[in-house]
Design a protein around this nucleic acid. Structure first.
Length: 243
DNA sequence: CCTATTTGACCGTA
DNA sequence: TACGGTCAAATAGG
């Protein structure tokens, strides 16, 4: 009966989520450092996220939180992310994004700039690309991402600044390497909070988690930095002004 | 009233 | 079989 149908539905969903098309979604990670434990509140990147789950991770001190775009159903936006806090450094958050936003967030009223960082590293393409260093996969499979190395040549400095805004202290390091970059500009992450463009702000983020080295590396295997040109192109089409 | 979060069960994968 | 990811009922908050 109802329960049975429920079951079937779940199954379908599960399959769907495991479908190739899904795994094709671009996936990238970054680390965000906050200045103080209390600052974790606004760990917001300008998008509206809806938390749909939290899990304790093996060996991890903190649980991992799962988020999906608030407009998943209304606009079919399948962007999602998961956040985890490093047990060793509570101020460090590991964020894994998956999929680009296809939704029109609160473009008009609030600052769309935040979108930038949502973009997975894109290689060619004059302007944008610079933001990310060639995602060189090392043994661990993790990607080294340069924080603020984008020489926003073709763009107004504003964009660059905006980019920073969300990416405060953003650094991605190999699981094994002791995050050499982390120190830089991380201190004053100014989350000039997004204008409450979209409905209820999503300034949550109380619970984050952290992953063990093991978890990281295994996850890394999955990270295949796919430069889904199509997605990007599409995005750029919608937000031509950002780049 | 509505939407977002919490929480434990569920399910696929390793 | 254990782990990690997701769902949805119950709950919280406006």
């Amino acid at each position: 009966m109802a329960a049975e149908m429920e079951r079937r539905r779940r199954r379908r969903l599960a399959q769907w989520s495991g479908a190739a098309s899904w795994k094709t979604l671009p996936k990238w990670s970054k680390q965000v450092r906050v200045s103080s434990v209390q600052d974790i509140g606004p760990l917001d990147d300008g998008f509206s996220w809806r938390k749909y789950g939290q899990k304790d991770i093996l060996g991890a001190k903190y649980p991992r939180a799962y988020f999906r775009c608030t407009h998943r159903h209304t606009q079919g936006c399948h962007a999602s992310k998961q956040v985890q806090r490093a047990d060793a450094d509570p101020l460090l958050f590991d964020v894994v994004y998956q999929g680009n936003h296809t939704c029109l967030q609160s473009r008009s009223t609030s600052r769309p700039a935040a979108e930038q960082q949502q973009q997975p590293p894109h290689e060619q393409n004059g302007g944008v690309s610079v933001a990310f260093i060639k995602p060189a996969k090392d043994e661990a499979g993790l990607v080294h991402e340069a924080p603020f190395s984008f020489n926003s040549t073709a763009h107004d400095g504003g964009a660059a600044g905006a980019l920073l805004h969300g990416g405060c202290g953003v650094v991605t390091t190999a699981a094994s390497m002791p995050s050499p970059f982390v120190s830089m500009a991380t201190s004053d992450c100014v989350y000039d909070q997004l204008g409450g463009g979209s409905m209820a702000g999503v300034r949550n983020v109380p619970d984050v988690e952290f992953a063990t080295e093991a978890a990281k590396s295994s996850m890394a295997d999955d990270i295949d930095f796919i430069f889904s040109l199509d997605d990007d192109a599409d995005f750029l089409d919608k937000y031509p002004g950002y780049f």
